[in-house]
Design a protein around this nucleic acid. Structure first.
Length: 536
RNA sequence: GGGCUUGUAGCUCAAUUGGAUAGAGCAGCGGACUACGAAUCCGAAGAUUGGGGGUUCGAAUCCCCCCAAGCCUACCA
């Protein structure tokens, strides 16, 4: 249990009502705050400030960590952490090391996060990078907060776009043989297809080879590209699932049987339809006898559930928004627990080059790949950039600006703080100023009494709550914002005070303080999949 | 036409889910390196939260009506 939770419990126990606890925006207003008095004031029709005063007199505080309670503003109740407790916390933070901020919030619940899942028809583009950064960070955060989270990538290697891929490859192959050929309508003209055709030819695969051979080779080549890009981006997937395997398992047919038996499907125009709650019925089996995309997808999600996950999280692009309802309707027709499927929409990335928005069409061969972004702006910068935005906001990515700003980039601001601390610690080692703290250490920490130092420690104490919040909301973006605030406090402190000075006890206390800062920067960055360099 | 999402400082984005004076970073302006890294710091400026109404102690956040952008609206996946 973290401090916020303990305080929360103490307040609720002494008042016997539910209260919400928040962290005020300004640190002058205390460490925690509640607006419960307003709600009660309304019920009893009395002035909020009076209600707040009355509540304050009734709250039995855990005095080991709360120092001061005051009524502020129109009726807010503000709590301040006890100084002695602040020092004790610093010792605790140092002691917990890399585990600080982790928790058992998830209670070992199993979560599967599926993301990217790009069609194997071309290289990963920028949007996939955004999804990859968010999904990967989410998995890290969930695992850090006591869930058992796995990442999964679904490879859609069946269907029309794979036929088009095959035909596109064949076209390029024919060109190699000096024949004239044209990329089919809706096919893929990109350079990478030529490469695949060349490899096939080198391997002696003939054009009249079994169609599956060419398809499989094409898909595998592109999946290999995806894996390489993701690895370069620091993203690792636990599972790679192929649609063809889902089909082979017979899942889709079972879905059809089940839905038909329940009477939720009907035949019309030679096709089999699923009844939708809104009347906009969807095709399950096309009139040519093939499954529509929806069916194997339902089977795939049933497969996920069958693997024992308590929650499925899907990161979808906005082009899949309408698919959510179909999928959920299909799953509930199969008696699956739809409420255990959470879909997060990761909005588009609009690329801007030379002040103009550019399209992201794979068909026109006009797109910027994830690899290009990583090469041009770097892995850490682009990850930080993607993670700073909440998923549902449309993101403008100006590639020139990203390059230009890279020296002044927020990620460097944070990494610089960590490098600066490493540098200080290096110097301290050279001067042999190793800290010799007492058992608990907090006696010496009481030397840290400037405003800057206290603000830092208070910020550190809040870290577990930030992580928890990010975890509960499935929103990694709280982490980079916290980091920026922490780095600001550190740089601020650094400009005003010296860590290494003539005053040995103070020096030692401050060394421990900056160590704690570096440690938390490192943890937070690792939750984002970003490095914390000792030198830059 | 209908549905989903978005609209916050010149630009790119936050705002602990209905709370206090709406916060950062870039860009621009004015300052600070003769002690631990100036990739830094300090200061000033920049907002009618797209517009209008409503709900209430209290709204960027909830409801209604407009305006604008993106996506969906397939027997494609």
């Amino acid at each position: 249990m973290n401090i916020k939770q303990e305080l929360h419990k103490a307040i609720e126990e002494s008042l016997g009502i539910e209260v919400e606890l928040t962290e005020p925006k300004v640190s002058q207003l205390g460490d925690y705050s509640t607006s419960i008095a307003f709600t009660l004031a309304k019920q009893t029709a009395s002035p909020p400030r009076e209600v707040a005063q009355e509540l304050v007199s009734r709250i039995k505080l855990p005095f080991e960590f709360i120092d001061r309670v005051e009524v502020g503003g129109a009726g807010f109740i503000n709590f301040w952490l006890n100084k002695n407790f602040i020092y004790k916390s610093l010792a605790k933070i140092l002691k917990e090391g890399e585990r600080f901020g982790s928790s058992n919030l998830g209670n070992s619940k199993k979560i599967l996060v599926e993301f990217v899942s790009a069609n194997p028809t071309g290289p990963l583009v920028v949007v996939s990078g955004r999804a990859a950064a968010i999904g990967d960070s989410l998995v890290r955060i969930l695992n850090f907060t006591g869930y058992q989270a796995d990442s999964e990538y679904y490879i859609d290697n069946c269907g029309r776009q794979i036929k088009l891929l095959e035909e596109s490859i064949k076209t390029r192959y024919k060109e190699l043989d000096g024949e004239k050929a044209e990329i089919p309508e809706g096919g893929y003209p990109g350079e990478y297809i030529k490469e695949i055709a060349r490899e096939l030819k080198c391997r002696g695969v003939q054009l009249n080879a079994p169609t599956d051979d060419i398809r499989e080779y094409g898909v595998n080549s592109i999946v290999k590209l995806h894996k390489a890009s993701l690895e370069k981006f620091g993203v690792k997937f636990d599972n790679w699932v192929y649609e063809s395997d889902i089909r082979k398992s017979g899942g889709p047919q079972k879905v059809i049987d089940f839905i038909s038996k329940k009477g939720l499907a009907y035949k019309k125009d030679g096709a089999l339809w699923l009844r939708m709650p809104d009347g906009k019925d969807k095709v399950l089996i096309k009139s040519d006898g093939e499954f529509a995309y929806l069916v194997p997808d339902i089977a795939y999600h049933l497969d996920k559930f069958s693997r024992g996950y308590d929650l499925l999280i899907n990161l979808f692009g906005p082009d899949h928004i309408s698919h959510i309802d179909e999928l959920k309707a299909g799953l509930s027709a199969c008696d699956a627990q739809v409420d255990k499927l959470k879909v997060i929409i990761v909005q588009w990335v609009t690329l801007i080059k030379e002040g103009k928005k550019i399209g992201m069409s794979k068909r026109k061969g006009e797109f910027i790949t994830l690899d290009e972004v990583i090469d041009e702006v770097g892995k850490d910068v682009s990850r930080f950039f993607f993670l700073m935005r909440k998923c549902e906001s449309h993101l403008d990515f100006d590639i020139e600006l990203a390059k230009q700003e890279s020296k002044e980039n927020p990620v460097y601001y944070v990494q610089y703080a960590s490098a600066r601390i490493s540098s200080i610690l290096r110097l301290a080692r050279e001067q042999e100023m190793q800290p010799r703290m007492g058992k608990d250490g907090h006696d010496e920490f009481s030397l840290l009494k400037t405003q800057e130092e206290l603000l830092i420690i208070r910020k550190l104490i809040h870290f577990p709550e930030i992580v928890e919040h990010a975890s509960l909301e499935f929103s990694p973006h709280y982490i980079p914002f916290y980091l920026l605030e922490l780095a600001t406090l550190f740089h601020n402190f650094y400009e005003k005070h010296r860590v290494i000075s003539e005053d040995m006890p103070l020096t030692q206390a401050r060394i421990e303080l900056v160590k704690a800062v570096r440690q938390i920067i490192k943890i937070a960055l690792s939750l984002m999949g970003i490095s914390a360099p000792e030198k830059m």
